[in-house]
Structure formats: C-alpha cells, structure tokens
Nucleic acid binder design. Structure first.
Lengths: 236, 236
DNA sequence: CGTAGACTTGAAGCTCCTCAAGGACAGTGG
DNA sequence: CCACTGTCCTTGAGGAGCTTCAAGTCTACG
C-alpha cells in the first residue's frame, strides 16, 4: 500500500482538549496487555460500522476520523480523534461507525474483554469517554446552529493551542499568527462540518480575501489574525 | 412553583436504546449512597453550564433536556435524557451544558467523588456513557446531513418502540399505528433538530396532509403509518 | 368569555447546495 | 524537460430549502 504521506504535522492539535490528568497507571496497564501496536498509512480503514466490536483502539500518533454513512451515500464525520484518545469503545456488540486514518498513525489494539474486566482502569476509560461527550456536545451546537462561516472558523481554531478557550491566552507577540496543517481534504472537512466541499472552499477563499488567513499549501493554512478568526466562530 | 403538568406520558420512550444489561449491582450501590432523590416539576432548571460539577444525576422518571447556548441566544439541545440514564457526568470541573426538565421528573443525586472512587461501578457508568456517545453520533448525522423532513421523521420514530431499528419488528397488526406524547414544545423540538419552530410546524402539517400522522392534541400525535414515516427518516 | 401562550400559515429573502467548468498540482512516462 | 493524466480545489450561475418576518388561529385556563 502506497503511503500517501500527508506528513504528521501538528495532527495532535486536531483533538485539542484538557490535558491528560497525572499518570493514572494507564500506561502500565496498556503495555501489560497482550496487545498489538500497529502502524497504519494515511486513509487506511480501521473498522467498519457493523463489524463485531471485539477490540478497543488507542491512538498513539496521528489522526483518525470516525464517520457514518446514510444509505444514499451521504457521509458525516462524527469525530476526529487525536493522540491519547480511545476509539471503538461501544455499548453494543458492533461498531456504530466507521474508522479510517487521516494521517499515518500508530494505534494500540486492546482486547475489549480484558479492558472491561479490568475494573482498575475503568477510570481512565471513563475520563476519555467524558471528554468525548463534551466534544460531541460542542459539535452538535456547530452542526445545529452555526453558519458556514462560523463552522469553518471554529474548525480552524481547533488547531490553535490555548486560544479560543475559556481562559484564552490572547495574542502572544506582535503578530497574532499560527500555521496549521489540516491533514484533511476539503471533502473531509465538509463532511465533518455538515457542508459541501464548495461551501468550505468558498469560505476559505473569503477568509483569505479578508486577510485573516493565507494559504501556504492546499492543506497548510497560516492564520494571520487568530483573534479575527476567533471572533467569527460565534462562540464569543 | 406551578406544575405545568404536561403529563408523564411515554416520556420513557424519548431515549429509546438498548435495554439495560442484567442487574449489575448498580441499584444497590446507588441506594447505599448518601443520596437525595428529588422530585421536579416540568421546565425546572437542574444545573447550568459553568456550574461546579460536584454531583452526578440519574434520571429515574420523566425526561430531561441538556442544551447549550451561544452568546447571541441561539440554543441547541444536545441530548434528551430518558429514565435510567446518567447525566451531568463531565470530564472537567464544571458542567459543559445546561440541564432542564421537560416533564415532571424524579432524579437521584449522587456525589461525584463517591461515584468516581467506587471502582466497582465504573462499569455501569461506562455503559451509560457509551450508549450516550452512540446517540450523539446518530444525532450528528441528523444535524449535519438530514433534511428537515428527515429530521422530523427521525424524531417521531424515537417514540415508536422496536421500530426503525436494525431488526425492525415490522407492522404488528392491521393498522400500523402508534400514538406518541411529545412532551416537548415546538420550540424545543426545533432546538433539538437544528431547525426553526416554523419549519417544524410546516413539516408536521405536511405529514398530516399526506395522511401519515394525525394530531390528536398539540403534543400528542398519532402516527397512522409508522412504516411510511420510517421511510422518510433517510436512514433506510 | 376573554386572555396569554403556543402553534400555524403565508410571503419574501437569504444561505447554502447543485451543477458545471476551469485551474492548480503531483506523479508518470516519453 | 515537458506534455499527459488524475485528483483535488476553486469559481460561477442558478435554484432549492430553510429562515425571517408578520399575521392569524387554536387551545388551555382563569
């Protein structure tokens, strides 16, 4: 399989969130399991909706997308998974969505049964799930109530560390800039934001025209006015 | 406080999902805690976004909505909580959304610390969270990719037990009917589905015109053709 | 019976989608 | 080195779907 190699970039920033709590022993647990660590290329399928969910995945490096399809082919990305997150943790016997890598990835594959029987580390799993729920709540607001501009602006702000959050650090120096690697195609961004590829493209072009961003490469964008973009998110 | 009393109806159906697994001891645990059980009227606030999250709630009877607000007043219901679900289980120190009753409710209030220290029952909590995530995934598809008709049809199908699911039972008898109590205003439905109140109203009127539903009372709808409504959900 | 709140309906307009064409870019082979 | 090809992205024109604004109607309840 050909590595499309979109680079590892700052894919980690894709899942900006609260830092992991102090070491809770999870690492020891995870390593003690009969687990495989697997390297994957970009755009590799990991599992499909309906597959028996006998494993749980932990993303160590890279970025993964979870998505669902409607019978007529419409696609919705339901989550973008970043490093140190679990995915494939479901309630029923089968996966409820598809998982595919966005970038080359390193994933750890855990046995679902072993994980569920280890009461000791349910705390770690639970913390991951709770963070995931909060992100899904935010995304519901985006999908249900935000305009195309607000959606794209919100998406761009995901990549900017420590900004656009409750205790935003504000501009650091003279220039309020941040270069971000999207590691996603326009189509993937559109399917994440509930828009079409054309609308995403138009909004990005418009942000460029307004001088808020510059496009360095198709999937590398320099946000030249972080505060400006942040004010377009609708969140503040 | 005046009980608006929208009736208890079939509020339980609001959160159709996999049945709870066989007794896992949770009930014993929950009852053993220093907990309060509280009765609430309809449209009572339970907690607000930003409140310190020192408690976790379990809904015993009724229905609760979780919602977020944008600074300009736009509202998005992020979840509708039904009986036997936990809510207010967050990752950080504060609640990430607001909680308000839809109907009169009975809730059990648990101490977050006690719950988190009880490794024994993390399994129960984890199961609840995983179900919640699957519902949020489905809702993301609805908000991101479904038309107004599909959204309303999907919403109506929430109330029909055993139908519209993977192993749909099919029509039971001669008539393929189901009476549902919405227990929500049009505005709440609109804010859940990412639509306006007028659009929800128009779609409902149109479904009536097409003979798929009959409106018995403002918030009691008789679905006269369950299969017909189901085919409008976009899911099959 | 009158009032308030919730719901419905209509008309107009805006946002975003669809369809279609063209441009940019990387990889391939001559 | 340069045309060729495929893929992804951009841009434009037109239209559908939903929202907005503004009445009007229904229902519950005193």
């Amino acid at each position: 399989m050909a590595y499309t190699d979109r680079g590892w970039g700052n894919a980690g920033a894709l899942a900006k969130g609260a830092p992991l709590e102090a070491d809770d022993g999870w690492q020891d647990f995870a390593r003690s399991q009969r687990v495989k660590t697997q390297r994957l290329a970009g755009h590799d399928a990991i599992f499909y909706e309906g597959d028996p969910a006998e494993r749980v995945y932990e993303l160590l490096e890279g970025a993964v997308m979870l998505f669902k399809l409607l019978p007529d082919g419409r696609r919705q990305l339901v989550e973008i998974v970043g490093p140190d997150s679990l995915f494939g943790v479901v309630a029923g016997k089968a996966f409820d969505c598809n998982a595919e890598t966005l970038t080359p990835c390193v994933v750890r594959i855990l046995d679902r049964r072993e994980l569920e029987n280890s009461a000791e580390f349910q705390g770690h799993v639970s913390r991951c799930l709770r963070r995931q729920i909060e992100r899904l709540h935010d995304h519901a607001v985006l999908l249900g109530r935000k305009s195309a501009f607000e959606r794209v602006a919100t998406f761009l702000m995901r990549f900017v560390p420590d900004r656009g959050v409750a205790d935003c650090a504000g501009p650091r120096g003279d220039k309020d800039e941040q270069v971000v690697e999207l590691t996603m195609t326009r189509q993937e961004i559109a399917d994440f934001l509930g828009l079409t590829i054309e609308t995403v493209s138009r909004v990005i072009s418009d942000l460029k025209r307004r001088g808020l961003i510059a496009i360095e490469k198709q999937d590398r964008i320099r946000i030249t006015d972080v505060c400006g973009v942040c004010h377009l998110t609708g969140t503040r």
